[in-house]
Design a protein around this nucleic acid. Structure first.
Lengths: 202, 202
DNA sequence: GGATAGTAGAGAGTGCCGCTATCCATTCAG
DNA sequence: CTGAATGGATAGCGGCACTCTCTACTATCC
């Protein structure tokens, strides 16, 4: 309960309607918003500041659905402080070109491409120069997944539901994907490798 | 540089060989380990304590490759404090049954299944009761991705490289997947939705 | 009417985590 | 011999997500 007061102070929850100077009324919309905040923090792992940004992106009106998705994506993808490897940037640009993107891409323009370049930079820094080879198969699998995501969002009716489903579907979806990916690894490991011993030490 | 001393103290890096009482020698293996630690922290978002667990799992010998993967997975999937919704647990069990798992699954047994159940619990708590419908398409896409992951690991030669590739491929792969998924969303959004306005407010 | 309990609002305090700064003894270079 | 540098250990710091406390007020029960 003190946490709620804290969230109110931080502007994550709208103030209730004061029925008297010491009595505020909160309706279902407040509860829904609180649950959303908790979901972003618990499952999405977002900081309070990021949650504020996400909520701001959600609450901003007068945008097309496409630009709304962009705003939400920026808000839920906070950039890391990793410095980018030029080779990793090339990896990302090559990936875009293979996808038919002809114009030059500035990876620092969006948090999402920055995240991708940062991950590949770190991979390179520990000797995994060919991690970029995974991008194409990843995209292939993700086409199926993204299609399911879009279908999931599309069956929402109201504007608020669509936007919320974007946020929830992306963030909770990330966690679900993580978990199912590990399960898939375990299954492949069981089927292919079984109890075979490890290769001998170097 | 003070950070390295800190990591040494925390047992994340092995002590160097003392050539004299105030001179320690660190070789390439130390540098490699340091880079790995930074990767786990920066990209994987792991806490120092989790990193210690991961390193312990890596360094433990005398295990089969399959059980090693299990140990690594447990270490990199720290459980959240979300309380599980019984319905979400059923969702997970149903998913396993559809995958041909006949025996009853205890989701609290592994951090991975716990993560999945927790994510579905949070989804339910904010009214997304049918998020579980995404599990099957997710798995379908992830089969392609997991296959690429396994191929990536399989081309490593030495035992240490295989284990490191497990950790790196899983954690950096998570981040890469996240980024590429957002890109796929944006692409679908551009193609399907374009600049169509949002549906009218509720 | 008076005691009790509860609430809003705001500021200060707390606990944890990931470093960072300081100190000292030693030791090696010049 | 002097000065810079290193290893090892201890203490301190800054940020973040709360949590506690205090005050002023009110609503309710007796």
């Amino acid at each position: 309960m003190p946490t709620i007061k804290y969230y109110l102070r931080e502007g994550l929850l709208p103030a209730g309607v004061l029925t008297s100077p010491n009595q505020a009324h909160y309706d279902d919309e407040h509860v829904r918003r609180l649950r959303l905040v908790r979901a972003l923090v618990d499952v999405g792992g977002l900081s309070i500041a990021s949650v504020r940004e996400v909520l701001a992106a959600i609450d901003t009106r007068d945008e097309s659905l496409h630009s709304k998705l962009g705003a939400v994506q920026e808000a839920i993808s906070q950039p890391s402080s990793v410095e980018l490897d030029p080779l990793a940037i090339e990896d990302v640009q090559g990936f875009f070109e293979r996808q038919g993107e002809t114009e030059c891409v500035d990876v620092t323009e969006s948090n999402v491409t920055h995240m991708l370049a940062a991950a590949l930079s770190v991979a390179r820094s520990i000797g995994h120069d060919h991690f970029r080879d995974l991008l194409d198969p990843y995209l292939e699998g993700l086409k199926i997944i993204a299609q399911a995501d879009v279908d999931y969002i599309a069956r929402r009716g109201s504007r608020d539901d669509v936007i919320e489903a974007m946020v929830v579907g992306t963030l909770i979806g990330d966690t679900v994907l993580k978990a199912v990916r590990r399960l898939a690894h375990a299954q492949v490991s069981r089927d292919v490798i079984g109890d075979a011993p490890l290769p001998p030490p170097s």
